[in-house]
C-alpha cells in the first residue's frame, strides 16, 4: 500500500532524513522508533506532503505521491504531533473539517461511524476543541482523521502528554482500527506500547534507518531503548 524509497529530507544544511526506505501493507502496523531528532516526525510529514522532500520517492497504492499536499491525497490521513486542533471550533465542526468535501448523507454516515468509536465525543459535539482534556483532544484528533475514511493513517506521537491509562486507551483504539483493515504508521516514544501493537518496527537514528524488522523479533522495549541511545554506529541492526 505505502512504499517509501530512499527518502531524504533537508532543512537548509541540516540533514533530517537520509535515504530511508520502508513499506507498509493493508491492515499492517509499522512503528517508527527513535530518539528526539531522529527524523521520525520529518518522515511522517514528508509522506503526507507537509515537509519538502530532497530526494526519494513515496508511492501509495501504486501512485507516486511524492510531495503531494495532504489535501490532494485520497485515502491518507494524519494525526499530528501535539494533536493540532483549532481551539475555537466545536467538536462537531472539527469532525466536519476532517470529512472534507462530501455530501450531507455521506457526512452523517461517517459521523455516526466515528462517534460509535468515540462515544464520549458524541456528548461534547457543541463544546469547543480548546476546552477538551488532553485525552479527549487526542480522541478528537483521531476522530478528525478518521472522518476522511483513510486507508492509511499516519500517527505522530499520539500519546504525547497523556497519562499511561489514556495512552493505553489510544493504543486499544489503534488496535481496533488495524482489525478493521487500516494501515497504520505510528511514531511513538513509548516503545512498550508500540511494540505491543506493531507488526514491524523501523529504527531511526540521526536521520538514518539503523534497523527494520518484525516486532516479534525485536529486543524488548528497554533493550531497544538502550540500543537507540547507544552512541555506537549500528548499521542494519535487525533486517
Amino acid at each position: 500500500m505505502l512504499a517509501v524509497e530512499a527518502l531524504s529530507i533537508r532543512y537548509g544544511r541540516v540533514r533530517a532524513l537520509e535515504e530511508v526506505s520502508l513499506t507498509l501493507g493493508h491492515d499492517e502496523v509499522l512503528a517508527v522508533a527513535g530518539l528526539n531528532g531522529a527524523g521520525k516526525s520529518s518522515l511522517v510529514r514528508a509522506i503526507c506532503g507537509l515537509s519538502p522532500v530532497a530526494a526519494g520517492r513515496v508511492t501509495f497504492e501504486g501512485r507516486d505521491i511524492t510531495g503531494h499536499p495532504l489535501y490532494a491525497l485520497d485515502g491518507v490521513a494524519l494525526v499530528p504531533e501535539g494533536r493540532v486542533l483549532a481551539p475555537s471550533l466545536t467538536v462537531a465542526e472539527t469532525l466536519r473539517l476532517g470529512a472534507g468535501r462530501v455530501r450531507a448523507r455521506e457526512l452523517d454516515a461517517r459521523r455516526t461511524e466515528v462517534l460509535d468509536r468515540f462515544p464520549a465525543l458524541g456528548q461534547r459535539l457543541n463544546q469547543r476543541a480548546g476546552t477538551l482534556s488532553g485525552g479527549e483532544a487526542t480522541m478528537l484528533a483521531l476522530a478528525r482523521a478518521l472522518m476522511a475514511t483513510p486507508r492509511l493513517l499516519l500517527l505522530d506521537e499520539p500519546t504525547l502528554g497523556l497519562s499511561p491509562a489514556a495512552a493505553a486507551r489510544v493504543f486499544e483504539m489503534l488496535a481496533a482500527l488495524r482489525r478493521d483493515g487500516l494501515g497504520l504508521l505510528v511514531v511513538e516514544q513509548d516503545l512498550h506500547l508500540s511494540l505491543g501493537l506493531a507488526d514491524r518496527v523501523l529504527l531511526l537514528r540521526h536521520g538514518r534507518a539503523i534497523g527494520q524488522g518484525p516486532a516479534a523479533s525485536m529486543p524488548d522495549a528497554r533493550r531497544l531503548e538502550d540500543l537507540l541511545i547507544a552512541d555506537t554506529e549500528q548499521e542494519q541492526l535487525i533486517c
Partner: peptide, 11 residues
C-alpha cells in the same frame, strides 16, 4: 484560528 490545524486537516 490555527493555520497548522488547517494544513493537517487537509485544507
Amino acid at each position: 484560528d490555527n493555520r497548522e490545524a488547517a494544513r493537517v486537516s487537509g485544507v
